[in-house]
Design a protein around this nucleic acid. Structure first.
Lengths: 249, 249
DNA sequence: ATAGCCGTTGCGTAATGCGCAACGTTAGGA
DNA sequence: TCCTAACGTTGCGCATTACGCAACGGCTAT
């Protein structure tokens, strides 16, 4: 492992929380400010960070560039785009696209609610595994042993009264999701929001991504949310077709 | 400058063009593969890159996360600052930055004319909707029904001989602005001043602010003002890039 | 005018990251 | 089934590289 690189990447991560001064950053990686400056200079030359005023550094524009190019590489996103936008336009609710990579569930696309009340989320963010509908959908497709393994390794932080808090309950939930063909998050992540999610499948029937709809409870009760299931499933189906999946009757 | 960091960032840039193997990457930075591997390992531990299969590396999910967080951090004012200051320095004319918030057009930044004759304005001031170039730019991006609504609600106080005084004329003007990509105020607000304005766009192409240049007629006739259009558009473009907008084609 | 706070620079040192070469591991063909 | 080749991986010893130090410089505020 490269020490200076490690430090530099830590700096970048730190700058994601907002602009910082040279000395603040030195404190974070615990080195002399001259060392920090050398790292920042190199980062700056690659446009990973840029100066803001005289005393502050912030993230640079190379990141937008890289992130966009990386996102285009993942073609689920492009393939699902139309179906997701339509769903968002029809219902007006927040629509998310997530995928499972390297043991993590990541939001790779998002269509904001047109209602005044929005939920906070962000592309690139990691979704907690035990209390989101998208994670349930994505994990339910893993082979049995791997599922057990993951279920055991989760830190079941209880976020609401409904949060699942044991591996056994979680595994049972995954089984339910697998057979039902969709997952819910009944206010398990945040008290005032519930979600439904469905799998998007690829050419070999494997789950390549999950699409979810998130709705504030004040706008729609749980039954109302489930009422949108046919629409969600149709959306997931359309997106799956775009990903090379062929429906078998 | 840090050598290893420099190499690592070069690797990241290279990976933006698509997944690569260890040896391909070694070729790019011209070092031994063991060296490349150490760098990749560190990048991987920060989720900047991830493995794809056994033989390939690609960009990791941290980049999405960082890029989106960076975008949230950025406010238009800071992002546009450099481009606007440059424009002001080059031309010597008054440059304004305005945004549309809560049904009002507000000046959020200003670079004063270096010429002895200045126009009066102030950051935080509301711009009249029917007779300023910035308002035309900002309103032209609203969805059709909303535009009609706003156009109807305006009080068309005639301030000069050129002031637009009817909703229909105003809506037609917005259409012109929308297709032209810039707006003018040909002495519609004050008899002795005319302006040009252009949109600053965000990551999704939406108009997040407007930049304008205001010039006393005694210093420059209308054709002379339009002669500055390329410069203004380039400024708006540069500011847009800082706001996360990516030029297409 | 002065003090204090940051960022900046040059330098000598040793820790760090480098290349090398030997070792695994996987895949494909005889 | 075994052999070979191609690629990733590991340990090691050397010197390049990045580190901390301390002095300098610019800015601001009092």
């Amino acid at each position: 492992m490269s020490q200076s690189l490690d430090r530099a990447l830590t700096l970048v991560g730190e700058l994601a929380t907002g602009p910082k001064t040279l000395e603040e950053l030195s404190g974070v990686i615990e080195v002399h400010k001259s060392t920090t400056m050398r790292l920042l200079r190199t980062l700056e030359s690659h446009r990973f960070v840029q100066r803001e005023g005289v005393h502050h550094y912030r993230l640079g524009t190379a990141l937008f560039d890289l992130a966009n190019r990386a996102l285009e590489e993942r073609d689920v996103r492009r393939s699902a785009e139309n179906a997701l936008r339509d769903l968002n336009a029809r219902t007006g609710y927040t629509v998310h696209l997530a995928s499972y990579e390297d043991g993590e569930v990541i939001y790779i696309d998002k269509y904001d609610s047109t209602h005044p009340m929005r939920m906070y989320s962000r592309i690139g963010r990691r979704a907690p595994l035990h209390c989101t509908a998208v994670a349930k959908v994505l994990l339910s497709d893993l082979p049995e042993p791997r599922r057990r393994e993951v279920a055991r390794s989760i830190d079941y932080v209880p976020l609401t009264a409904n949060t699942i808090t044991t591996p056994d309950a979680y595994l049972a939930e995954l089984d339910r999701v697998r057979t039902a063909g969709y997952a819910v998050d009944n206010a398990e992540h945040e008290d005032f929001i519930h979600c439904v999610a469905a799998p998007i499948r690829g050419a070999r029937g494997e789950v390549v991504a999950a699409v979810s709809m998130s709705v504030p409870k004040v706008l729609l009760d749980f039954d109302g949310l489930l009422g949108h299931l046919p629409d969600l499933l149709a959306t997931a189906r359309a997106a799956s077709v775009e990903c090379g999946w062929t429906p078998r009757d």
